[in-house]
Design a protein around this nucleic acid. Structure first.
Length: 548
RNA sequence: GGGCCGGUAGCUCAGUUCGGCAGAGCGUCUGGCUUUUAACCAGACGGUCGGGGGUUCAAGUCCCUCCCGGCCCGCCA
């Protein structure tokens, strides 16, 4: 270190050292508050039709912070609330079935769903008839996805938190200090007037969330209400007009209070949230926590939303992707890597360039092992990589994604291995487990090529495609067949193709095209000679002779 | 209209806290591999760091201002 640098440090001794991984910075902030163990990290969403990748910000951002804190010796509890006492406000356009497949509203009983508008998600039947409720179905999807990504997260049902009395103290407190609550919230919401009561009972008659509380009885722990209409955008969900009484467990706090309430009853120390909350719920939540509930709000972190294929995530427009879908195309660690990147940057997840994301991951991995000459990346990888993979293993082999896609042109496992070996990815010392893991990428890259129908989507044709060749090309193909039959390796075949084409005075391009058509039924393809060298000789000879 | 976040190579992004040489990967191009045919290797090209102004010996980085995009400022979450 230079003298200049030392002087600079001395001048500014209080400055925190720069952290290479954002999760460390967050962990620093959390530790600075001297939290009690276990440290609680929360995320949460309202159940919607589909658990899409965007929802995973809530889980994955928290995961990295949890992992860093655990490494520092803390006990950490990562919880995720399904905010399932929220009412269904409008019908989702898309739903995900139990396996995570996205289906349209038409594939379920939409009428049954429509009759449940305004009721809490936990009181609505599962449209797929499998789980206890709509909410349970959705929560199960998220939990399954978290498991797939290896994130140990504890799912909590908001409805249960009300029903089992966890929320009692908060509801009592808020209703007991309704004036203060009104006053604080009115700073943020213009509609909060003198009649505003921060509690929404569930109508005992029609089951909908109501918005008009007429009186509060703190002694009895009840409120009186009128079941009124609910306005959602330009739609109205009709109330039934019933006048009734509800206990503090038979309703919910409005979101602006519910969120801080969750912080209190769960003892939340950190919560990441999307930028939509940054200017609305967070400032009011912070204020309500301190000045209504008398608690310190958690350390916040705003994450930017990412776009999918250049467009905003939108389930109604079909521009969404789920975790299972992504895992058909990528290893879990690559997906985790995506979420380990700086949350403050809006970034695009471009399916057509997944190869780029995977390349970036591979480079990140090599950086961890010190094989990349890039200080910044290496510093980031040193911190983040162990949390991205299940297990750090240095002799792991990664096939470049596009090469894996080339290998995916055949289903023959031995052939895949042979081609990878010829390219130097495997050698005699490569352990079997490493080969096995490396090949997992081949199926994913293959799925990617098929999904996009891109330039890697070639398949060796088992049966002879219909191909018209002129006499000169036919003669050349026959001659090449002879060459192959005698026994030559891929490189020699590749070279011979040029020679053969010249001898027959045909364009090299035409000759290759004939070859591609014969083997792939496409005018283009991978490096043909070397590919043929890997295939069964008899098969290649017969195909070149257009026999089978 | 006000606020928050973002804008760096064709693409994806580091670098912005705390001012110190404009960076990486991919793509492209050229060359190499006996070879125009998508895997491999080498090299090159590629920049108004959104625009403008200011502070400074020095600005992608700090200040002011404007432009563009997303989000929030109704309800709801």
């Amino acid at each position: 270190m230079s003298e200049d640098r030392e002087t600079q440090d001395a001048d500014d001794a209080s400055a925190e050292p720069k952290r290479a991984f954002w999760a460390d910075e967050v962990a620093d902030e959390i530790e600075a508050r001297d939290p009690e163990d276990p440290i609680v990290i929360k995320g949460g969403v309202s159940p919607s039709g589909v658990a899409h990748l965007g929802n995973f910000n809530e889980i994955m951002r928290g995961y990295f912070v949890a992992a860093v804190l655990r490494e520092r010796g803390h006990e950490v509890r990562q919880v995720f609330t399904s905010d399932d006492r929220d009412p269904l406000r409008k019908l989702p356009r898309k739903l995900a079935d139990t396996d995570g497949n996205i289906v349209g509203l038409g594939d379920v009983d939409a009428g049954a769903l429509g009759r449940n508008l305004g009721r809490p998600y936990t009181d609505i039947p599962d449209p797929f008839g499998e789980s206890e409720s709509y909410a349970a179905h959705f929560a199960a999807l998220l939990k399954a996805d978290a498991d797939r990504l290896g994130v140990p997260v504890e799912m909590l049902s908001n409805t249960e938190l009300y029903e089992d009395g966890t929320f009692d103290e908060v509801v009592e407190h808020v209703l007991g200090h309704a004036d203060t609550a009104r006053e604080v919230l009115s700073e943020y919401q213009a509609k909060v007037d003198a009649d505003y009561v921060p509690f929404n009972p569930i109508c005992e008659e029609c089951g909908k969330i109501t918005e008009r509380v007429t009186s509060i009885d703190l002694e009895a722990g009840t409120v009186d209400y009128v079941c009124t209409d609910m306005t959602v955008g330009d739609e109205t969900i009709e109330g039934c007009g019933h006048e009734g009484t509800a206990t503090f467990r038979e309703g919910k706090l409005p979101w602006r209070f519910e969120w801080p309430g969750q912080w209190q009853v769960l003892g939340v120390d950190f919560e990441p949230f999307g930028k939509d909350h940054a200017e609305g719920s967070w400032p009011s939540g912070e204020d309500i926590a301190r000045n209504v509930l008398g608690i310190e709000p958690p350390v916040p972190m705003v994450y930017e939303w990412f776009t999918l294929n250049g467009e905003a995530l939108s389930s109604s427009q079909g521009n969404i992707v789920t975790v299972p879908e992504m895992l058909d195309l990528l290893e879990p660690e690559v997906l985790r890597y995506f979420f380990a990147l700086n949350p403050r940057k809006a970034r695009d997840l471009d399916i057509s360039r997944l190869d780029q994301l995977v390349d970036d991951f591979d480079r990140f991995e090599r950086a961890y092992f010190g094989d990349v000459d890039d200080e910044t990346l290496t510093a980031f990888a040193e911190r983040a990589y162990p949390f991205v993979v299940d297990e750090v293993r240095e002799d792991r082999v990664r096939l470049p994604y596009t090469f894996a896609a080339v290998l995916g042109m055949t289903d023959d496992r031995d052939l895949r291995i042979e081609m990878a070996r010829n390219e130097g990815y495997f050698d005699d010392d490569t352990p079997e487990w490493a080969i096995e893991e490396a090949l997992e990428r081949v199926d994913r890259a293959r799925a990617w090529a098929e999904r996009l129908d891109n330039e890697y989507n070639y398949r060796i044709q088992e049966d002879l495609p219909e191909v018209d060749v002129d006499d000169a090309v036919a003669a050349a193909l026959d001659e090449l067949a002879e060459f192959v039959a005698v026994g030559h390796d891929g490189e020699e075949i590749q070279g011979e193709m040029y020679e053969t084409a010249r001898r027959h005075d045909i364009e090299v391009g035409d000759f290759f095209e004939a070859g591609y058509l014969l083997f792939f039924d496409q005018p283009q393809g991978p490096r043909l000679g070397e590919f043929l060298g890997e295939l069964d000789t008899e098969f290649v000879v017969a195909r070149l002779r257009r026999e089978s």
